[in-house]
Design a protein around this nucleic acid. Structure first.
Lengths: 219, 219
DNA sequence: TAGATTGTTAATCGATTAACAATC
DNA sequence: TAGATTGTTAATCGATTAACAATC
């Protein structure tokens, strides 16, 4: 049943979970065919993805919704308590601090940091903003699983280095810049401008590349 | 030289552009090897990607930085003027309205909409918030290239339908839900919770999958 | 000429999906 | 039993990358 999961499978698991959570609570089972329809994916692909989580589907019936959701949550580590810090409390950082969607996914914000003395001491989402200089020391006593970078682009690489040195194993970068991190640090990037530019290609595509269509939206 | 571009290539072009923009202005040329290093990709892959934009590299020298940047911009439609509306002006919507990074990438916010009468009439990023009911009518007179959904999850599917019916060809969805849109509508998804869950897998991976490492972060 | 680097080929790798035996 | 659906195989498809002739 196990080993490692293909990267593409890992990136689809959150989407399956979203679909399961949208089902009526009375719903007991779901087939790969219907889950594929809900998630805009292929039924054979859904079955292959789920097969990495074990062999627990019922032939002729489908998958037990609760069990499937539980297996996805466990695989993604959502049953653990994950600590998060946000660095850079501007518009976006504040939005993240106020976002309620972390808790029910196993993530908990334990610190907000900013380099601007005018912001330090103020609160966002009920948490007091601390000076960025404190991050390294705080990391010694508090385990930090993820650092979210929401600073301006120019500051992002420095913050990434700071987080890496402090032993934070995962970084989610919202700053519009390419980051370099040491081997072994997990990095993901969320970039509005990049997404718009990709959409821009497919829009422009209509008068340049003839039949170019967009791929299934990933994740 | 041309036809359509592989989806994976399109998704890397914004990253190349970011790297080029980080170079010193005095920099005249760059080799595929250095661009690969800066963007954390493979040099052969960089050359293959760029070959879709034409054959303009100089053997023994590299690529002319300005020409390369210009070709990427043109391919992504950044030389055109693209109109954007944002629906849902909460924390995130406000952050988007105030984000300065659109203009220099060819995107211009022409409308903000919200369903909450208390928000209508207020401003964000210098633009007055209009009632969501006005969107369809506004779309008749103003060309809208992209609709950004920043509403709560529950409202997102309805807004997506509204945008599609109004003839908006591209949607960027920030709401934490899976959307279904008609064929031909370009949809991309930005989802913090999903990104965290993917990171969560690789964190948990350390005590489950043995040697599982994360893939190169995409885009 | 010698060194560097492109553009492209071909091999490899990984992801997707149709098909179907197994089985509920 | 008949119908439905899984789990898996094998074919296909697309993406990545090493290698190298072409050439600046």
């Amino acid at each position: 049943m196990k080993g490692t999961l293909p990267a593409a499978t890992v990136e689809r698991l959150p989407r399956y979970l979203r679909c399961l959570e949208m089902l009526a609570p009375s719903r007991v089972t779901i087939s790969s065919k219907e889950l594929a329809r809900l998630s805009n994916l292929n039924a054979a692909g859904v079955r292959k993805d789920l097969s990495y989580l074990g062999s627990f589907g019922m032939r002729g019936v489908g998958y037990h919704v609760d069990e499937l959701a539980a297996r996805i949550r466990r695989t993604l580590g959502m049953t653990e308590d994950r600590t998060v810090v946000v660095i850079g409390i501007g518009n976006l950082g504040s939005a993240l601090a106020n976002y309620g969607g972390f808790g029910n996914r196993g993530f908990r914000i334990v610190g907000l940091y900013d380099a601007d003395p005018a912001k330090v001491g103020r609160k966002a989402g009920g948490i007091t903003i601390r000076p960025i200089e404190r991050l390294a020391k705080d990391a010694e006593t508090t385990d930090i699983a993820v650092g979210i970078i929401a600073t301006p682009a120019k500051a992002a690489q420095g913050v990434a280095a700071l987080l890496s040195e402090a032993g934070v194993p995962s970084i989610l970068n919202f700053a519009p810049t390419v980051l370099n991190v040491p081997d072994g640090i997990h990095l993901r990037q969320v970039d509005v401008a990049t997404e718009l530019q990709i959409l821009g290609f497919y829009m422009a595509g209509r008068n340049r590349t003839g039949g170019a269509s967009h791929p299934d939206d990933p994740g």
